[in-house]
Design a protein around this nucleic acid. Structure first.
Lengths: 200, 200
DNA sequence: GTCTATATGTGGATAGAC
DNA sequence: GTCTATCCACATATAGAC
């Protein structure tokens, strides 16, 4: 049961959008990547706007699943925060790719209004989950200096996204590590960010 | 002595790039905005790549001047940090515009390699200046909890940029305020972020 | 320095055969 | 479900008159 064409198109489009923005890839690119003709793409996604909606829906579901996975495998707030930072660090792909939310935010004017709504829903989902992580870290004492979990979330999501951006600007993942190091160090028992950057 | 055509083109192009990305505006847009024909633009900027270089050079110089202006009018580290946050808040234009650095970072693959170098130089300039602000705030006691000014700078620039992005995603400037509130509150004597958001 | 006219490529999208 | 062929709009860029 190999991946069907529709899924292959979504995978290819997401990679392209995260590397070059929504305006930065074309049906011709997808066609070459997946191995069909560009006219055939319209059978699966009648317009590029429809493709954008499908991409965002898939991304939302995937991140929601990933966060649920972190909850299932990490007990403390601190461990969950570290896992979140790791998740974004891996999505960075060594500075070649942004997360889809950042990519779509910048090219918002090229997107159908439906995607703008999806973007808002995605952010609210993430903000809620991150606030829960900080609340738990506050209660169990595994994240230092938490006063207001909501405010922490409002700062943390932009920080992670800004760190992606900084790393991508120069295709240098160490800029991501530097940007999030102070946040990572707030996790009690953290060894000082060494595990994230590979430094001794 | 009114602004010459070349400057008018730069102003128009910067506004467009910050609102819609480098791929999101065309010579036709600029021509309509400035009031000449699109072919005439090539007299001032032979290619769009050349325009990108000129835009980035101008932006770098302007931000450098703005930071020097903050230094001249604000004595303490805390006051300078507050002024920096205000600078980015004003550049946001109520959620309609990003800073040019963010805009160019996302569309990096569409830009000439020279601009990628300029982007790096810009970031280093800003990181150095911000690190100085934190070092001063550490010495004069006007910014709370500063341990490593370089690390603070590495986190602060991405945070400001990520806050821009979050606000632009939903054209809602209050998301910027929420993202930077914890940072703003570290300034000693700050009233708790009320002055930034207008809340009581 | 600005214009008209045009070249050349590429974008997303459609029609209709297979 | 995929193809060929084609459409139309728009992109950057150039040539040459004024």
């Amino acid at each position: 049961m190999r991946t069907d064409t529709k899924t292959a198109l979504l995978v290819s489009a997401e990679r392209a959008a995260r590397a070059r923005g929504f305006d930065g890839f074309s049906y011709a690119d997808l066609a070459a990547d997946v191995g069909i003709r560009k006219a055939s793409i319209h059978h699966h996604f009648p317009s590029k706007a429809a493709l954008a909606v499908a991409l965002m829906a898939r991304y939302h579901a995937e991140l929601e699943t990933a966060c649920a996975g972190i909850d299932a495998t990490h007990e403390t707030g601190g461990a969950r925060l570290t896992a979140l930072i790791d998740l974004y660090r891996r999505a960075l792909d060594e500075g070649r790719r942004l997360c889809l939310c950042v990519s779509f935010s910048t090219s918002r004017d090229s997107l159908p209004t439906e995607v703008v709504g999806q973007l808002q829903q995605f952010r609210q989902m993430m903000l809620g989950w991150i606030a829960d992580v900080f609340a738990r870290g506050q209660q169990d004492g595994t994240i230092a200096g938490v006063k207001d979990p909501e405010l922490e979330a409002a700062a943390t999501l932009p920080l992670l996204e800004g760190a992606h951006l900084a790393a991508r600007a120069q295709e240098d993942a160490s800029l991501f590590d530097a940007a999030v190091r102070m946040l990572a160090q707030r996790v009690q028992g953290a060894t000082g960010g060494a595990e994230a950057s590979g430094q001794a």
